[in-house]
Amino acid sequence: MAYSDKVLDHYENPRNVGSFDQEDQDVGTGMVGAPACGDVMKLQIKVSDDGVIEDAKFKTYGCGSAIASSSLVTEMLKGKTLDQALDIKNTHIAEELALPPVKIHCSVLAEDAIRAAITDYRSKNETETAGYDACKPAA
């Protein structure tokens, strides 16, 4: 299997490896994939009060392309709003890393991880907001 230089670079020097505390209110966690399928990605985002992704971290069990896809995604996410983050498509990831066709699923998984992390963050904060909003008059 020939890997592109970009994949090798991210694989050998993965960016933003690590974890945030999953319980923190400003953290969204997405875990996608399954061990039996050969990839599991855990992507976490830390979101500022004004809805911008300040930081992102990942841990990935998977092939070189899966590791590179998640590493790349953490770089792409930083500084984006949640809505901008949702615009990241697997094709961007695959193109950027020059993934061969058999590895496209790695980029799909990375996109899924972004969505899962954002969903997690939003569901955490929505309930919270709903609690405060209860006192406000309906819009």
Binding site: V32, P35, A113, A116, T119
Partner: peptide, 16 residues
Amino acid sequence: SWVHGTESHREAETAA
């Protein structure tokens, strides 16, 4: 219980 790619996709879409 592992979330497979497509499933998480669906969840994300419904959430959105």
